[in-house]
Design a protein around this nucleic acid. Structure first.
Length: 388
DNA sequence: TAAACGTGGAT
DNA sequence: TATCCAAGTTT
């Protein structure tokens, strides 16, 4: 049986001291979180959990496959578990090993990634697979310093891989952990400026034992209990030590600086059809939707004044073009986009460019179009069907 | 340091 | 409908 948890009197706040609240120290916090994880942690496809014991604490953690950990961590960057799961299975099924992924053409990887967003992740994933396959034949790198030299792997991902796949102690800090720690310590400074402080506070608690389990436990806690809105403090293993909870305002953390409003950009997408095929074009290798297959179109220009559509070419199309009714709305990270769709005659467009490709309408769904272009396709087909 | 970089689900 | 937000990294 575990001994009495260590405690110390919180003395930063006179109010808490007056109430006599007992706060768990770092070791006790880690221990209670791991116990919670053994009972309530989620079963996820890229995760290995030790369910062999129902009583007591596990002394060591199982190690998940480094390829699976790496792939899942890249996919999970700024992306939810529900969205990632089918992509994770699809990738592993198609490319069961790092060598297989490294051998794949980049365009195949981008096609499989379509819909997941942040396409630089897919480009870096592929680049990283080739580096791993050529420069790390002896094994997946285990230390954070080496991991951070790899494409697409930054502070968080390096720490997560090192801890989860290799059981190495690391200070894993993601958005969930920032939120949990901000509440636990009632950090008043707003994000993103408070990152450094939150990272330091998180590091004071992270244990050397079962570092990967601990990191995943804290992320699970943030995702299922210490949620952004309406946190379930009543079932939180850290509630007794949580400063914000005791202050009664856990949901107010973490504070954030106000975000800038998104501007609106407008543009036209060209629907170029011939023999039941559509002309698509691959975007430049870097930047927005870099390397992705898209409908050709005008530039996307920020709306200025009331007739902004004209500046986007809505009234400057070639002879024979005709604008379909309605519009496609899509929001990117830093701007809103409003797209009109123009049906353009193939002979009015340069359709033999190297980056161009004709795709059967019936295969548009599997062509690997990013979501915004899937919206364009759906809108175009719907508008033309309605005009019949 | 700040801006760029996707998308879908929740409220 | 509008806004927030998610297992961040790169430049």
């Amino acid at each position: 049986m575990p001994s009495q948890p260590e405690t110390y009197m919180q003395n930063r706040s006179g109010e808490n001291e007056a109430k006599g609240a007992a706060f768990a120290g770092p070791a006790a916090l880690a221990r209670s979180l791991l116990a919670w994880y053994d009972q309530h942690g989620r079963d996820l496809p890229w995760r290995i959990r030790d369910r062999g014991q129902s009583h007591g604490q596990h002394q060591s953690q199982l190690r998940a496959d480094p390829y699976h950990v790496w792939l899942s961590e890249i996919m999970l960057q700024q992306t939810g578990v529900v969205v990632v799961t089918p992509y994770f299975h699809k990738f592993l099924s198609r490319w069961p090993t790092i060598a297989a992924l490294a051998a794949a053409p980049l365009n195949d990887v981008l096609q499989a990634w379509a819909g997941l967003g942040y396409y630089a992740r897919a480009r870096n994933l592929h680049k990283c697979a080739r580096v791993l396959d050529t420069d790390f034949r002896d094994g997946f790198p285990e230390d954070t310093a080496t991991l951070k030299t790899l494409p697409g792997i930054g502070d968080y991902t390096a720490a997560a891989i090192s801890a989860i796949a290799f059981a190495r102690p690391a200070n894993v800090v993601d958005g969930n952990i920032e939120r949990v720690v901000a509440r636990l310590r009632a950090v008043a400074a707003p994000l993103p400026g408070a990152r450094r402080e939150l990272r330091k506070l998180a590091g004071e608690i992270a244990p050397d034992q079962r570092p990967g389990d601990y990191a995943q436990a804290l992320m699970d806690l943030g995702a299922t209990v210490c949620t952004p809105r309406n946190p379930a403090c009543g079932v939180c293993p850290w509630a007794g030590s949580c400063q914000a909870r005791i202050n009664g305002n856990a949901a107010e953390y973490p504070r954030r600086v106000a975000k800038k409003a998104k501007p609106v950009r407008r543009g036209v997408a060209y629907w170029i059809e011939r023999d039941s095929k559509i002309f698509l074009e691959r975007r430049p290798a870097r930047g927005l939707l870099g390397g992705m297959l898209c409908f050709p179109g005008s530039e996307w220009l920020e709306a200025v004044g009331e007739s902004a559509g004209e500046s986007a070419g809505e009234s400057a199309g070639d002879a024979g073009d005709h604008l379909l009714p309605g519009e496609v709305r899509h929001t990117f990270t830093h701007f809103h986009l409003i797209l009109r769709v123009s049906v353009r005659r193939a002979e009015n467009h340069e359709t033999d460019r190297p980056a161009g490709k004709w795709v059967a309408i019936s295969e548009l769904d599997q062509a690997g179009l990013p979501s915004v272009m899937q919206k364009v396709a759906r809108h175009a087909l719907g508008a033309m069907a309605a005009a019949e």
